[in-house]
């Protein structure tokens, strides 16, 4: 067991290193700004004295490494600084919205993951059947659709024509759970549709790859039943690829959230980042980027560790 613990610890260490690197990039990105943050904020109206005052306020008169460490230390304590646009604390702006975004992503994931795994596996097992072929064409088309296209079609059908679900997902912290669910239904469905196609295709490919292994052929030559082959020979080796597919798509989901939130005017992190980009509210964009990137890195790390933990060669070292 020693080696597997080692490998996992290594990955964890690497993950933390990547997180640091990501924070450094996001920090340095702003340093690349022509002039500096204060000139960017004040634009044409900048005078030498106002810029200097601003620099003092934001601590820009200190050296970059000092500011980085300071910034990172604050983030670790949950302090992301203050918004340039409205002077509010960013952590306050974010906290509710972060919850909303995770809620939306979770609803989409709960529908998408089991459904696409099941359909992907079925398509792989009944390869080249009409079912598989139509799934192929369908998913190939739907990965080609921009998120907003899917979103507006759903709005047109379910909101405008049928009036089953609202086209605005304007939840607030005191919206009761079921009403909330009702309101996020269309955005969640949009995300589900977009993510499912990818997930199904990847699942299908992973399973087909697995079923082509010589040991599966050997199992057939041993006269084992199809169910036994799938349950005992394919499944134990399928975890790693499946976990990877799920993690990759959850990560993809997080990005998809941005567009969907804008379409449905859903008060989440995605909408916040888009608004802030338009206002060039750099500290908020930085904060949101850090959160999105961290989630992304952690998801991939989880997948990595899970697939290591199910690898028989590492579970049973020589």
């Amino acid at each position: 067991m020693g080696s597997i613990v080692n490998v996992i610890l290594q990955r964890l260490g690497l993950g933390i290193l990547v997180l640091f690197a990501v924070s450094l990039i996001i920090f340095l990105g702003v340093e690349l700004l022509p002039g500096d943050l204060c000139q960017a904020i004040q634009g044409q109206a900048a005078t030498e004295s106002t810029v200097a005052a601003c620099r003092r306020d934001l601590g820009l008169d200190q050296a970059a490494p000092v500011r980085y460490i300071h910034w990172l230390g604050n983030i670790a304590q949950g302090d992301f600084g203050t918004s340039l646009a409205n002077g509010r604390k960013i952590s306050e702006l974010i906290s509710v919205r972060l919850g909303n975004t995770f809620f939306l992503a979770a609803v989409a994931a709960v529908i998408a993951v089991p459904l696409s795994l099941a359909l992907g596996i079925l398509a792989a097992l009944y390869r080249n059947s009409w079912f598989d072929r139509s799934i192929n064409i369908l998913t190939l088309s739907s990965i080609s659709f921009p998120e907003f296209f899917v979103a507006y079609i759903l709005i047109l059908i379910f909101s405008v024509k049928l009036a089953w679900f609202p086209s605005l997902a304007d939840v607030s912290p005191d919206t009761p759970f079921f009403e909330r669910l009702h309101k996020v239904f269309l955005p969640a469905l949009t995300l589900t549709l977009v993510v499912m196609a990818h997930m199904m295709r990847m699942t299908r490919a992973a399973i087909i790859n697995l079923m082509a292994s010589p040991y599966i052929e050997m199992a057939k030559f041993k006269g084992l039943s199809r169910a036994h082959i799938i349950m005992h020979h394919a499944l134990p080796n399928a975890w790693a690829p499946i976990v990877n597919v799920v993690a990759l798509n959850l990560a993809y989901l997080i990005v998809g959230v941005v567009i969907v939130e804008v379409v449905f005017v859903y008060p989440g992190l995605g909408q916040l980042i888009v608004d802030s980009v338009q206002k060039r509210d750099i500290p908020v964009v930085q904060a949101c980027s850090i959160i999105f990137a961290a989630t992304y890195v952690l998801l991939n790390l989880t997948a990595d560790i899970l697939s290591i933990a199910t690898n028989p060669r590492l579970l049973h070292p020589r």
Binding site: P214, Y215, E217, M218, A219, F221, G223, N237, P312
Partner: peptide
């Protein structure tokens, strides 16, 4: 298969399930 006719493959390493 496996009962009355059995098969031994060239690559044992690939033909055993890991």
């Amino acid at each position: 298969r496996g009962v009355r006719i059995a098969y031994v493959a060239q690559s044992a390493a690939a033909s055993f399930n890991p």
